[in-house]
Design a binder for these strands. Structure first.
Lengths: 215, 215, 215, 215
DNA sequence: CATGAATGAGGGTTCATTCAT
DNA sequence: AATGAATGAACCCTCATTCAT
């Protein structure tokens, strides 16, 4: 297609796109503001200001403060869902060490953004029941998958595999979260290795057949 | 009511004591209110009402809302400090299984009160830097003690004992907290046993001399 | 009981009474403000200012703007109910001229306050269904009473007495209202006489037995 | 010609026919929106949307919200003026029954459109003094005409004919309005007949020579 | 002329805090 | 000390109006 003469070239930033960008801008600003100030002090005016917009403009993109929050939360959730799906896309890895590693790496990548924001979104803010349900569903799905794997490998007399699976999921999430907030060591890979070791060891000793190459 | 003749007037009621009781009453009410409503919706009026006092009286015992919060937080901290001190009072227990068990039980007992209140106090509310520092100091103290013990037992080539100690502390706290919020099983002792097993196993395999009586 | 020394005499303006006075003050101010500015522009801030109170104080007496409005409206309604009840307390007057006169005088006294306020309360503002129902019930009650009287006197072939009763009620209210807003003559009694003549004549010619002393 | 106050001057002289149509479209949409939502909630955005225009376009046809309202109000007034003029074009009808019938029918046809809109325009909205003056002028004109007719027929000792004329006008308008809002009977002609009877009877008994052909 | 994103004053309401009694 | 009425800054949100494209 020949380049049109300048005055006839279609305008850039068509409406749709421009609008989408502003929404994005607001969400990013809101993420920063909520992370820094928490939910209650994360005022819509502050968000608008952080986005370089007037308060009126903000309300042309979101019907109210909680809608911004909800959108932010759903994104985090979707990211998590995607990560879990990706991790199990081609079937679970063969060894528990690998499985745990995938979990840990996924958690690290999902939480990288900002642990404080995560906290505000999922603990401090008013969470509509639908969101809570989604959050729990996501966690339960992961626990279910891991429970199934544990059962497949279970030695007789092993403890409740569902509880063990819960420990895996909870430990990965909680400790990753805490690490990012606490930073006990600057060396992230040391944290990663220790967490993988902690959980792999536990799963194996908890009765899973050590279908692993000897360490 | 006619004024009683001076000699019969009851001996000046220990003002101090009465005062102290009112402070206590306010703190307890505040704990309930914050746990139920969160920080922002935990209004001073609600607290006063819960305490059966007028708002004016409340402000005669605390200069402002955050002072109530701070006091509450410091108490939790003190409780923790006390628990740690008690656990290590007569020297640490002999085996790692026992040491971990003490940690877990302590955490369970400290958090039993109300995990939501704990969250409000240490995550949702505006925490003055001084409080944050104390919180961190308490945790660091515990990490220090455990690091020392780990070093004493360390096999050559073991991973950074400070990181391992951090894992112990963080895992105990985070998972206890999460358990109380999540309740994956009603059976608290199952949770306890699994957590003890998880951490004991890890410490030992992380290089601590298995100076333990065979399980 | 002996007179107590001055400083010990019980304080005047006990809590209850003072509070009641403030409520009253707010309602009066609101009436003025609504009458002058209408519903939308009758802002709570303006009302507070008119009452010489801060906005915060206003909200200690009423939970929101519409509660003030509702209270005002109910008062008007109660006044109306009372007036109707009073008018018919000892049975209706004997002649239609007297009956109509009572209606007109009642309407004049009820509307004397401020016809614009009446309008704002019952036409311009968001009226909760319950209020509308009360309003209609009041009117229907009056129409019912008059219908019964008309039926008692009805000549054969008279028009629908319910419609005639409705005309009586509607005309008294509407024209009184309009008179007060319009003031076509300063002489209120001229208005009164003409309205009484208008309606009495109509009722009689509409078929009611002229059980009246010949004019 | 004196310069109009700026905000009320039409923004441009519509030269184009298309332009005139768009103005019309906006006015119709505004009428619907005001009638449905009232003045305050009848937002310019809603009007623009109802007209299928952008808010920007709306402001190219009217300088502000109140200009739309004013135009709408003036139209109603013009309609009324026209109706009055038409009714009296070939001289007033011969009998008072006919005269009153014309008044009532005119009122019914003028208000048929939408009584709620009428209310919004003339009672709920901020009415510029100029509009109020026009409204009153229109009413006064009608009252004047009727007063003249009454005087022509007046028996000695009749009450103030101006007041009687005012009653005629006010009753026709108010009761028509109220009937349309209240609908005490579905049968419009019953209402019409009763109103005509009410007013005719009054005029005659108020002293007008009964120069009527026997009904 | 059309569009619709942007603006910001202003409205209802809450709540920590003060102060007269 | 106790009381609770009073205060007003600050919050969320709406809407008439403007302006760059």
């Amino acid at each position: 297609m020949p380049t049109l003469p300048k005055p006839l070239r279609p305008r850039k930033t068509p409406r749709q796109k421009r609008s989408e960008e502003t929404r994005e801008l607001i969400l990013e600003s809101a993420a920063r503001v909520f992370a820094e100030h928490g939910y209650a002090a994360g005022t819509t005016n502050r968000i608008a200001e952080a986005a370089g917009l007037s308060i009126g403009s903000l309300y042309q993109y979101f019907p109210n403060k909680d809608a911004i929050l909800l959108q932010l939360a759903r994104r985090h959730l979707d990211e998590g869902r995607l990560a879990v799906a990706a991790a199990f896309a081609a079937g679970p890895p063969a060894t528990w060490r690998e499985r745990v590693t995938v979990l840990v790496d996924t958690a690290l990548s999902v939480h990288r953004g900002d642990p404080r924001l995560h906290q505000v979104l999922f603990e401090e803010s008013p969470r509509p029941p639908a969101l809570l349900a989604e959050l729990r569903a996501l966690q339960d799905d992961l626990v279910d998958r891991l429970t199934a794997l544990l059962r497949a490998d279970a030695a007789p007399g092993a403890p409740d595999p569902r509880l063990t699976a819960w420990f895996l999921v909870a430990a990965v999430e909680s400790l990753t979260h805490r690490y990012l907030a606490d930073q006990p060591t600057r060396d992230r890979s040391a944290f990663r290795d220790e967490l993988v070791a902690l959980l792999t060891g536990h799963v194996l000793s908890a009765g899973a057949r050590p279908a692993e190459p000897p360490a």
